[in-house]
Nucleic acid binder design. Structure first.
Length: 110
DNA sequence: TGGCTGACTTTCG
DNA sequence: ACGAAAGCCAGCC
């Protein structure tokens, strides 16, 4: 995908995350080519939460922790959304993150 | 124009 | 093994 804006690229990747799956900021950053700038992905989410219809709850840090839950309208919302999609969350962390992890580099053809 | 910031990640001490 | 610090880059004062 050749988007002019970094944000839109992030949004598209996040939208492509299958239901019941989750990915990490670093994975998206790596897919976009920004590499180590995983912080920007999270920052893009911050800008996206109201402007675009992006399932930001499917994006967590590399440990599967809901690091961005505080940036939702209600911190509980992120966990509820994940649970509603079949992803079990325990103590603000995704269970079996190895299984639900969805790597854009692996699943998407560049 | 220049510097600060950030929902991360990795590495050094 | 745990804690602190740097690295990364695009938007926003």
């Amino acid at each position: 995908m050749m988007k002019t804006n970094f944000f839109e690229m992030v949004y598209e990747v996040v939208k492509l995350i299958p239901k019941g799956r989750a990915t990490s900021y670093g994975a998206i950053a790596n897919y976009l080519g920004t590499g180590r700038s995983a912080r920007m992905v999270g920052w893009a989410m911050n800008a996206a939460h109201n402007l675009y219809d992006v399932p930001a709850h499917r994006v967590v840090n590399r440990n599967g922790q809901l690091s961005g839950k505080n940036h939702f309208e209600n911190p509980r919302r992120m966990e509820e959304l994940l649970e509603s999609e079949g992803i079990h969350v325990s103590n603000d962390q995704i269970e079996n993150f190895d299984k639900v992890f969805w790597d854009p580099n692996l699943e998407l053809a560049i």
